[in-house]
Design a protein around this nucleic acid. Structure first.
Lengths: 244, 244
DNA sequence: CGAGGGTTTGAAGTGCATCAAATAGTGTGG
DNA sequence: CCACACTATTTGATGCACTTCAAACCCTCG
């Protein structure tokens, strides 16, 4: 995909003058990265901001006793590195490709200048950060209150297309976007617990599955089960913006 | 405290022209609020942004099955409401005074205008949001990986003054800022677990306590115990900016 | 002194992690 | 196309961490 079209897909770049979009394009670089390779480490100074064209990027940290905290897993039209623009200038996590991926990189200096010289871009950035914060608030809430099967259910619900949200249209089969161990980690549980959580969902809600494909026969029953320990009914506000 | 002096204490307002500070002051209002009373609900449209002059404000949500998720507890020179400026315009949580508190309120429209017309303010806002995001990332990591005593230890460490951080100077007695049940909730555990976690800390690190006062005899032993399951040693980056 | 909230303690149960082993899937070279 | 190796996933058994429920204790304040 060419660069202007790609930027057009990312809310951060909506509604900007052609002139500044051109400027971004001029300084942007495509970057291919192979599965398993690392883009940055927590203490690296963030020289680049990234937009994902295709693939999956895992953002994570490792602890002193050797565990891993997966903070986010970003895919097409997602971005990362924007939180290192002002204030602390390190990334704060490792970024690792969990699939072969295509990224666009833009030097953070270009973004910094744009923020200082184009109100619209600054506003877009603040909007994006506000939305991200709402997502994180939701995540903290879920960690506080949901059990493992509910977190898995919530994760599945977020994979459903908007078209199925009213519950009238049937939900197409869901395919897990990456391997189960990674999903488990992202949800703060072990692969074993994840496996058993799926079984619990099969028992308690109307879903069926074979290998990595899950059929949600009744999205409402899944939502009733999963959102019970959450402050929002499905579809939650957090999801509403960003799909289909 | 008069309004300009208060704003001076909040990083969001650092380095701004007198003119715009005056403008903020002109539109700001003091507000007293009594313990137990509610400032806003999750679905309220955020007309005001708040800065805390004194007291403690609990930001929380309640779930369908009647539990509470305490997302933050804010005190002097802290602020809230800034994440509702652009994008979704509701607060997203209840704000309740857990002590008699004094706040300063500023209409969000004033802030919106300022962001659009003063780059410096926009940059400050982005900086503040970046820092908040780092804090939330840390919080998620801790929920994923730390057990209850470690989370409590981490909470205690954050209450220590900078002067004690090198471990040479003795640490003054720490007083819990609000009741234990609330601390427990904030850390995602029950009051019972919190109580037992403190006992575990007493057993495993060099701390002693009586009622709500805690003596940290050796800050390093507490840090070694608490930060083991964390990606950062104490003092963590998250804390470095914001005290003493 | 007695009432009531906050806090601690104890006993019992649940949920998740851990460890070990079985099974299913995937890719490789013969 | 099959045999093999290797990884991903599931299953089972056990233990620990945290919750729950109940009761005791404490502190403060009338």
């Amino acid at each position: 995909m060419n660069i202007p079209d790609l930027l057009q897909q990312v809310p951060l770049f909506h509604g900007l003058d052609d002139q500044i979009i051109d400027h971004f394009c001029h300084h942007a670089n495509h970057r291919q990265i192979k599965k398993g390779s690392m883009l940055c480490a927590p203490d690296d100074v963030a020289h680049n901001f990234y937009i994902i064209e295709s693939g999956w990027i895992k953002l994570f940290r490792d602890t002193q006793d050797g565990q891993e905290a997966v903070l986010d897993i970003v895919t097409t039209y997602g971005m990362f590195g924007e939180s290192s623009l002002f204030g602390k200038d390190t990334y704060g996590w490792y970024a690792e490709a969990v699939e072969d991926s295509n990224l666009l990189s833009i030097p953070v200096n270009i973004l910094k200048d744009a923020i200082q010289n184009h109100q619209m871009f600054a506003v877009n950035m603040i909007t994006a950060m506000s939305e991200h914060r709402r997502r994180l608030d939701g995540e903290i809430e879920r960690f506080m209150l949901q059990n493992a099967p509910q977190r898995v259910g919530c994760f599945l619900l977020k994979l459903t297309p908007k078209s199925a949200w009213d519950g009238d249209n049937p939900c197409p089969p869901i395919t897990l976007p990456y391997n189960k161990a990674l999903v488990a980690n992202r949800l703060g549980m072990t692969p074993e617990t994840f496996s058993r959580a799926l079984k619990a969902l099969k028992k308690n809600t109307k879903i069926t599955m074979s290998k990595s494909t899950i059929e949600i026969e009744d999205i409402n029953s899944l939502a009733a089960y999963s959102c019970e320990a959450c402050s929002n009914f499905f579809p939650c506000a957090e999801d509403t913006d960003k799909r289909d």
